[in-house]
Design a protein around this nucleic acid. Sequence first.
DNA 1: TTGTATGCGTTATCAG
DNA 2: CTGATAACGCATACAA
Lengths: 351, 351
Amino acid sequence: MKPNNKNGAGTRAARRAESAPVTIGMVARAAGVSASTISRILNGTAVVSQLKTLAVEKAVAELGFVPNPVARGLAGGRTLSVGVVAQVMDSPFYGAALRGIEDVLDPAGYSPLFVSGHWDAGNEARCIDVLRSRRVDGIIVLTGRLTDQALKACAKNVPVVVTGRALKGPGLFSLDFDNFTGGQIATEHLILLGHRRIAFVNGDPKHPDASERLRGYRAALDAAGIAYDPGLVVPGEYNEVSGLLAVNRLLEGQQQFTAIFAANDQMALGAALALHRRSLRVPEDISLVGFDDLPTSQYAIPPLSTVRHPAYEIGRLAAASMLQLLAGDKPTEKAPAPSFIPRESTRRLRS
Amino acid sequence: MKPNNKNGAGTRAARRAESAPVTIGMVARAAGVSASTISRILNGTAVVSQLKTLAVEKAVAELGFVPNPVARGLAGGRTLSVGVVAQVMDSPFYGAALRGIEDVLDPAGYSPLFVSGHWDAGNEARCIDVLRSRRVDGIIVLTGRLTDQALKACAKNVPVVVTGRALKGPGLFSLDFDNFTGGQIATEHLILLGHRRIAFVNGDPKHPDASERLRGYRAALDAAGIAYDPGLVVPGEYNEVSGLLAVNRLLEGQQQFTAIFAANDQMALGAALALHRRSLRVPEDISLVGFDDLPTSQYAIPPLSTVRHPAYEIGRLAAASMLQLLAGDKPTEKAPAPSFIPRESTRRLRS
DNA sequence: TTGTATGCGTTATCAG
DNA sequence: CTGATAACGCATACAA
């Protein structure tokens, strides 16, 4: 009989006092089986007799055994964690997506590991390294700036789900929101209300979304036979202050316009304030539409007409796809189509 | 010469193709030293000769060796990760705090592991179990609903930093924002402007913050010799719609008031919309102040006067405190004092 | 100062 | 179907 060190309190283990770090070995002894059997039962790796299964389940329950994910990660390669590369944690848009991801991953027993890329390809690459070093089972990239190539390379080693682009491949799944159509329907809405001089506040050109939304804007203009006027397109950076500045520039440039389409809600809100400062009323004097439908947009004054970009839902779908990939299945999720949410910031052009 | 299995592609390792999972052993061979030495150099556990140190550093750089946190966690007990119990990922307030935490933890080599408690004590307890099972080195709890006792118990096993309450102890540090004073200065501001009928939109009573802010409101009233009128205090839930509803209730209740103090900005924004719907202008007819100073509040129409509650900064401080705790030091950080940010939603009562 | 042996808690491999 | 036994990659006590 070999000496069993059941006395606990080993050198290092002692640090983590009482709080019962029950190990698989303890369960094994309690149930009168080997550790391998426990592992097999818990993971469904092989069939074991009813008898032992019951005994083990009982022991597990009584001792309150919880497998150590760290050890599990080292031994088996699975850590039951998936990395999420977001860009900025505190953007209302990403926040919702993260919640969606968490809501799906959690019930499946997976933990998300969030890291921020800060809209920088190099930084995103570093994030991926961190995640991989932590042995995440999969990586979700929320609309990053990494090259398609980098993503494909990454997918060779670990399942990848990416939003904001179309890019399928082995171990790689993408969920692409249709920003083009989004930009189009927003513009069409304004055109339908009689507007012809429609300004566009562009998003950060570094974001792939932005150019698509602009393309949609131009397509709608084209379809309505309205000439594209570059003077009506002003740059922005997807935040409130840039929307405010953009409208100031527009106004100072003596541009004539009756409506503004901002490439996201945050800029639209900034634009609204700029108009307010000049005593221009929305929508009486100027119609305004945004993009994203942030939770706060419906409480803006006036409530903002916008294109719904369901971040929470996209987060859920991305996580669900990852779960499929992890299970060895081929994901079939599809990003929801954009839809227009008319509220009170737009109105028919007075003729 | 023992057979060195340098051929790579072992049974399981094969799965993670190429992408160089450089191990400490490979560096050891390359540098001509033992693995222990590498470990010692990387962790500063012991003094090693300049010569070997240089050789190792060179090998590490050339091979691009990155210690595997998983293995490190199993062996040493440290995972270089700290758990963060937030409540709702997509609240603008928590978003900022999370960013602050990440910004401090990341340079220190620690990864945050975010989990959402959803304002439920039971759920928070479960979150802590998850975090502990993942062997995080420390836990940051952002204003949860756990009992002080539960927190103290937890701190026995792992360092804990908690915001939103005063609760020091061994391995336990707290960062308490002064909500009382915050409520007080907001109310004082309105009183100074000549307002005496000041409505208060309360926060979710389940949040500890809310009652403190209310207490501050009452204290300011008292100090100014204004009688407290329960009819002017209406319940809210810390979100926009509840602020809107609260004001509706106030208006329908035929209450007379010239100013509103909402216990957070989100409710203040909802309140603003409710007033707008009734054609009551802010601040001409009603003055409005919020609490938190969300990034969007300065772009509200009109820009919202509010109490600054620096979420990002608090996140940073919490993370910094955790780093101290982890280093064996006693944290000395202190939550910033609340300050009032006058903007355009308040004005002197016309006499 | 440095290398060797051992262990961390699981999973995977291989005999039975 | 089941139990030893060997990894997993690193940190540490121990010996040198």
